[in-house]
């Protein structure tokens, strides 16, 4: 879809410029290597990770990666399953929370709030988006984790990780939802008003369905970020490899495992961490495919 569109654009440019001006030629000379470089680098990354993960997949095998008694790579135990479950679980929980809060606040901003308040709120959310993840982690570790520990020890937990992640991805969901809602054609909203619908009905029955593809894209983008987030999660999740029995149990995610163990990992341990990277990439790519599913129709809107 996208490729066919871009090639038709090129054909159009070719037709209007029989003699290509020198600026365009220069631009071509810059853009070609830039494009080739970007493509090569991403391919090289995938290739290197796959090659490095090879011994892990070959010698350990998929069965042991999913069925070993525990994750103790130094002792030859390589069960990745709890880590994969934890990664998906915490990202899904955080994305649901962020989606609920983000979409509701976007409706509030576009349909109910006075303009001043809406602008003010949007600026605050943009500020939240600018906070580096390690700062979220530090805040989580010094404020959130002790608070959770007071409720139920030990403190670093699925709950703490979920809350920190929710705050981190909230701006993505809120800002994308706000812009999607504000791009809903005024004629639809006026039509709703003319029919005597309440503001709530206009927002939920007209604006929300009209903007749903844009909103869904924002949610999936946020999910992708939640899956890959490393530092903030590492600092508040406790990093114990287990499937949690409650919200107060510690968990371990794939990116945290790589960051924690790669500096001193050797041999099969190292290879198993590259398997982690491969699995993580597969999960994130799957979510990106979901965005592609939403994209074509939202482009038509």
């Amino acid at each position: 879809m996208i490729s066919s569109k871009s090639s038709s654009t090129f054909r159009f440019v070719d037709r209007i410029s029989k003699a290509e001006p020198w600026e365009d030629r220069l631009l071509r000379m810059i853009l070609w290597p830039a494009g080739v470089l970007a493509g090569t680098v991403s391919l090289a990354i995938v290739l290197v990770i796959t090659i490095e993960a090879g011994p892990g997949l070959g010698e350990i095998g998929v069965v042991r990666l999913l069925a070993d008694p525990s994750w103790h790579p130094a002792n030859g135990r390589f069960n990745l399953l709890p880590i994969i479950v934890d990664t998906v679980l915490v990202a899904a929980l955080a994305t649901s929370l962020a989606a609920a809060a983000g979409i509701l606040s976007a409706i509030f901003c576009t349909s109910f709030a006075p303009r001043m308040l809406a602008t003010c709120f949007t600026r605050m959310i943009e500020l939240l988006a600018g906070i580096p993840s390690v700062v979220f982690g530090l805040w989580g570790m010094t404020v959130l984790v002790p608070a959770v520990a007071a409720l139920a020890p030990p403190g670093p937990s699925l709950l703490a990780a979920t809350l920190v992640l929710t705050l981190m991805i909230l701006p993505t969901v809120t800002l994308v939802a706000t812009s999607s809602l504000s791009r809903v054609p005024a004629s639809l909203l006026i039509g709703g008003k003319a029919l005597g619908l309440s503001a709530w009905s206009i927002a939920t029955k007209i604006a929300l369905p009209a903007a749903r593809r844009g909103i869904a894209t924002g949610v999936v983008l946020a999910l992708g970020r939640a899956l890959g987030e490393t530092m903030a999660v590492l600092m508040v999740s406790g990093n114990i490899v287990q499937i949690p029995g409650s919200l107060f149990d510690p968990i371990r995610t794939l990116p945290a495992t790589i960051a924690l163990e790669i500096p001193y990992a050797e041999g099969l341990h190292r290879a198993s961490l590259f398997v982690c990277a491969l699995v993580l990439m597969a999960i994130v790519l799957t979510t990106v495919c979901f965005i592609e599913l939403f994209q074509p129709e939202s482009a038509r809107d």
Binding site: P69, T142, P146, P153, I240, L260
Partner: peptide
């Protein structure tokens, strides 16, 4: 390693010091 029942796993000394400094127990 498999005998240990930990509540928190950290990477380096800095992280260990940081965590203990904010956790009374």
């Amino acid at each position: 390693s498999p005998e240990i029942k930990a509540d928190v796993v950290v990477g380096d000394n800095e992280e260990a010091l940081k965590f203990v400094s904010v956790s009374p127990n």
